[in-house]
């Protein structure tokens, strides 16, 4: 089996670098969020109240 993280190596090197936000990022992500909401809106509206109420389960730990 391959080593997931060879010891002694900084494993962060394997992780992708956090992307620097592009200048237009705020607008772009605003649009992406609106697009996503538009897409799921239909399914969220169907019997929302009944759907939510039917999720009842005993507590865990």
């Amino acid at each position: 089996m391959a080593q997931l993280n060879a010891q002694g190596q900084p494993y962060e090197d394997d992780a992708p670098e956090p992307e620097a936000p592009a200048p237009a990022a705020a607008t772009a992500s605003t649009d992406a969020l609106d697009d996503l909401l538009a897409e799921i809106d239909g399914s969220l509206q169907v019997n929302a109240e009944q759907f939510v109420r039917s999720f009842v389960q005993k507590g865990g730990q």
């Binding site: 939510v52 109420r53 039917s54 999720f55 009842v56 389960q57 005993k58 507590g59 865990g60 730990q61």
Partner: peptide
């Protein structure tokens, strides 16, 4: 939490 307010965890 569920809709009745019962809780379960992430330990």
């Amino acid at each position: 939490t569920d809709s009745a307010g019962n809780s379960y965890g992430c330990h």
